[in-house]
Design a protein around this nucleic acid. Structure first.
Lengths: 221, 221
DNA sequence: CACATTATGTCAGCGACTGACATTCGGCAA
DNA sequence: TTGCCGAATGTCAGTCGCTGACATAATGTG
């Protein structure tokens, strides 16, 4: 309605249509997140979410495949950010260190560029707590996480110039890393002490530091 | 119908009622497994499963909370077996070795005692392959697995005489172990070479052997 | 042979999700 | 501006997973 069309734009403008679509999508994510936080995931109906944005239920399902997907959408940006950071790590770096640097960066380097929409870091942390309250949501989250591990394994294999079908180490490392991350998330959402991204990063660090010691020898000495 | 009641039984007999219940439960699991394998998980309806056992849909949901649960039931016995074996490991053993011994044993020591019903090892392996074909089934499986990891972490903590809230190593080890197990499952269900429990055990072994090397230093030399 | 318990069936209903079809709206050119 | 094409949305009907409420049948017990 506002915003001059700038007739022969640099072919870079998203166009009114695309912008409108993005707006409804963001509105759906935000409304869903708010409702989920307020009354719980399972007690919130898709009709409520759609109604809050004044859109038909059918339209909702054209934006998201299912209810889980809206809920987890607020984590999507953080995940993409993590992948970007991982790809940007220097090739000489040892794989586990690269993973660690990427995950820490993805939590701390907020708003670097696009901080648009409801994908704020706080929303992501709220979601991580919410995930533990709903079995179906937890299940959906775990599925996404394992898909991410596949991607991570591929990136590691490329970094090291390995064939993933030949050398199993990338897959093993990605799986172990993912497991430890989950443990850290769980620990964070259970404890009430550490809050905010810094607390999360601290917990992730403590868990990763224990990965080596947990594997070897006797624990007692 | 057969099996003499042995009137004043040693108070150990399950009773007709319990036996009948067990039979329908097993029948449901087996029918479901067969239908899932034949026409896929999502394309099989609960009514079909119930109909195959000549039971109402409502009764089905009195035995299983949802469709996922029947499908994953064929793995339940193996999981319980694993937990038992883990508890039986000597206390002096290093935790990772105990986990490894337990998981190998749970795949190889088949039919040791109750091998009744549809919970055969072959069915379990078929299920593991089926899991990768259905997103919702995979999600449900992952959720169960993480619950198992909680149990494993508790057992490890007890073994070592640690407070799980204090020392994070049990949780970290359980998570990493679980991740590597998943990687092995995926690898097994992807490759067509290794079949049967032996192949699975071999793959699990190869993955666990790489857990240490994947974490440390440079991979190239 | 009653009587309490428990498993099962029937029915109605909600909520997630989908296909089919009609309608409207943004983009683009005559 | 006008007119057209395709994309986005709404409406409707229907399937399937799942649940509560109530009635009925089977089983175990005195």
């Amino acid at each position: 309605m506002a915003a001059q069309p700038a007739s022969p734009a640099p072919a870079q403008e998203p166009g009114l249509r695309a912008r409108k679509k993005q707006r409804t999508r963001d509105a759906l994510i935000e409304a869903a997140h708010r409702l989920f936080l307020g009354q719980g995931f399972s007690r919130t109906t898709v009709d409520e979410i759609a109604g809050a944005v004044d859109v038909s239920q059918r339209t909702f399902f054209r934006y998201f495949a299912n209810k889980d997907e809206v809920a987890l959408a607020v984590l999507a940006e953080a995940e993409d950010h993590f992948i970007e950071l991982l790809r940007a790590r220097p090739a000489e770096e040892n794989p586990l260190r690269a993973l660690r640097a990427a995950i820490v960066g993805s939590w701390l380097e907020r708003g670097a560029g696009r901080d648009t929409g409801p994908s704020s870091v706080t929303a992501a942390l709220e979601l991580i707590q919410m995930i533990e309250t709903s079995p179906t949501l937890l299940a959906a989250h775990l599925r996404r996480v394992t898909e991410q591990e596949r991607v991570v394994a591929t990136i590691i294999a490329e970094r090291e110039g390995l064939d993933p079908a030949e050398d199993l180490r990338p897959a093993v490392l990605a799986a172990a890393f993912g497991g430890v991350l989950r443990a850290a998330h769980l620990s964070w959402s259970t404890d009430q002490e550490d809050t905010g991204p810094e607390g999360m990063v601290a917990l992730i660090g403590r868990h990763l530091d224990l990965l080596g010691p947990a594997l070897v020898g006797d624990w007692r000495p």
